[in-house]
Design a protein around this nucleic acid. Sequence first.
DNA 1: TAGTAATCTAATCAAGC
DNA 2: GCTTGATTAGATTACTA
Length: 191
Amino acid sequence: MASSVDSPPAGCASGLGSHRRKRITFSRGQLLELERVFAARPYPDIGTREHLARVTCIPEAKIQVWFQNRRAKRIKNRKPGGLSPRPELPQSSCSFPETLQEPWEPPTLGQQPPLSPSIPQHVSACGHASCPAPSLGSGQGCAGVRAAAPWGLAGTSEVYLSLEQPTPPISLGNLSEVIYASAIVTNVDHC
DNA sequence: TAGTAATCTAATCAAGC
DNA sequence: GCTTGATTAGATTACTA
């Protein structure tokens, strides 16, 4: 893991003797982008992260760290009863239009009637654009699936599975692209 | 079956405001 | 002092030899 972390050319932590921990400060635009994607899917797969990395010009590793911290923060804050920090994750992670429907509601999808809630549920549960279905395990292996697994053990995954089956209308690939388009299109002017 | 890789959470450290 | 990026440790899951 520590291999990809150093993207030397990045600029900041190039190789300044003391590899202490040079804290980087994300720009507003970058944060905006990250938060938007986070709202859509707190558990982005590698593809999403890489895409985000390109769009924001932030090393993928940093993005991963950012998401980790973000999740941790969220769990901490939403720890009133203390129990089940996850249960809500599947929600926010899956129903991107739900949490997102703020500034960038996708014109095409956003208006998807009452159906939308169930559709995106799987998309994010899977987390990967090109992941047909968790159980299908297409070679590549979907990170999103794994991500969902941990708490899925508690039974959440079953919900996803039952939800995703009856929702074939939208092509997941396109859907995630739409997510991205709506998430990114707004501010791609970082680079 | 064992080894490896990737990802996750949680706790903690520490920089920057 | 608070927020939050960075690091570390330990656990889980999936894939491959």
